[in-house]
Structure formats: structure tokens, C-alpha cells
Write a protein that binds this DNA or RNA. Sequence first.
DNA 1: CATATAGTTGCATTATAGTGCAACTGTGCA
DNA 2: TGCACAGTTGCACTATAATGCAACTATATG
Lengths: 133, 133
Amino acid sequence: MQLVTIQPETLFQALADETRLRIIRLLVVTAEEACLCELVDSLREPSYKLSRHLKILRQAGLLSSQKEGRWVYHRLVPKPSCLEMLYATVRALPDRDRVYQVDLARFTERMCLREGGRCRVGGLSGDAKVENK
Amino acid sequence: MQLVTIQPETLFQALADETRLRIIRLLVVTAEEACLCELVDSLREPSYKLSRHLKILRQAGLLSSQKEGRWVYHRLVPKPSCLEMLYATVRALPDRDRVYQVDLARFTERMCLREGGRCRVGGLSGDAKVENK
DNA sequence: CATATAGTTGCATTATAGTGCAACTGTGCA
DNA sequence: TGCACAGTTGCACTATAATGCAACTATATG
């Protein structure tokens, strides 16, 4: 299911969107895997939006996704060395508006809710839906 | 004229196009500066097309351009360290279809026509316009 | 001054990409 | 078996981006 052929333009295109860059940056910095509801809580974006962006990242060859019960865990693909260089570049990017910093703070807090390293709760701890913009 | 504020999404967006990636890759690999007509000869793309892509790369903060008589020389911007990392990533990208290899060969040949390190001839050695579909 | 040349840009067209809504699938639990 | 919930996707809409043509600017040269 993983592309052997890396398309450089597709790779950069995948990172040319703020939401997708927030996702990748979060995974790069934390070196973690995350499921959709955890990303929803961290980025405060609707699940259908993130789901679609995750699909694009997967198709670009940046993410691999693994289903586990109700949850789907997404993690960075390390395989070709140029991807590691790309991740290093992402890590070195400036964070002028502190967007990534806030995302990371919420992600870290959210990860505390894991039990045995696995996600067990839904988005926003079962509260109402996202009211972000 | 150079942006102090680097917009990561704009940066990746700039590289999300094949033509622009060919331009950047050529400059990254050769560590050279080039004017439009030299790029036209190397990539075999119409000048108006490359001119527009060069503008996009300039606005993204990747290129700086300097006019010299009739010619405009374009070179990579080295300033923020994350750009150097980005260039390293570009250098590490695969070249499956040998597109960059061909571009480089034509570029090297074209650079032989320089006199005193400066461009002195127009596109395609003064021949007819590009016929590259 | 006329002409050639290096490069740029306005316009119209076409293709592609992001978004929200709502309906949908699939899994686990009472 | 019915329900709640994690996640996905079809549809319509809107915005953005790439392209080709042709007209344009600016610089050098005879």
C-alpha cells in the first residue's frame, strides 16, 4: 500500500497546506503516532477535514496508517533517506505565530489520556463538537 | 526586497511544481546563478513560463534576482538556515526519469558560452524559438 | 533613431485543491 | 440487537494556480 516511487512535486505539494504541515510537524517533533481524534483535539479542526488531509499525506508517501479497533493510528514513514531530511527541514522551520507550540501543548495534554499507550477516549473528552471558527 | 518572514506553506508550495523544482534543483546542484535565457536553453521551456515561475520562487523567498544590463541573474537565497536544509533535501531527491540529469547536461553546455563569467548570447544560440510541446 | 533582444505581464481559459454539510461504514459495548 | 462513536466520503461550491497568446518594457547595438 506504500508507494515505492516518490514524486518530489507531490511530496512538496503535501506540505504546501497549513493544516497538513501542522500534522506533520506534530508527528516530527513528538516522534509519535496519533489517531484522528487525538489530532482533532490538538489542532481543533473538524475530523472530516483532518481525515481528508491525512489521506493526502498518506498518498504522498509521508504517512502510514494502521487500523486498531475503532482507532486508526498515523505515523511518519521513515523509509527513503530524503524523507528524513525533509523532516529535519520541517523541524527547523520557524514558528512565528506559535501555532505549532500551541498544537504541541494540546497534543501533549491529550496524550495523557492514553491507557497503556493506546487511545481510549474520543474527541474533546466526549464534550461537544469543535467550535473553532 | 527580500522577505524577512518566511511562510513555510508558501515555501513548500513554491517547490510543488515540476518546473520550479527543476529550476531550484539546477541552481542547488551547480551552486550557480543563471539568467532566464540560460534556463530556457537548459529546461527547454518558453521564457514567459519560466519568467513567471522565477517570480513565484522570488516571492517565496527562495531566489534573489539581480539585473545586469539586458540580463537578469537569479541565484538561491542562503540566509535562513532552514533554507539550506531545504536545498539539501532537494539535492537528495531521486531523479527517476533523469529529468534533472538532462537539464544539468544542457545547462553545463550552455554555460560554456559565457564570456568572462557573464551571459552574452540569447536563447538557443540565436536559433528559432523553443519547439518543445 | 530603428531594430533586435532579454525579460515581463495582462487576459482568458482550464484544471486543480480546500471546505462544509450530511450521509455513510465499521467497530465495540450495554 | 440496538446504540454510540471513530473515521470516511460523495456532493456542491469556491478559490487558487498553471498555461498560452500576445502585447508590453527596457536595454544594447548598428
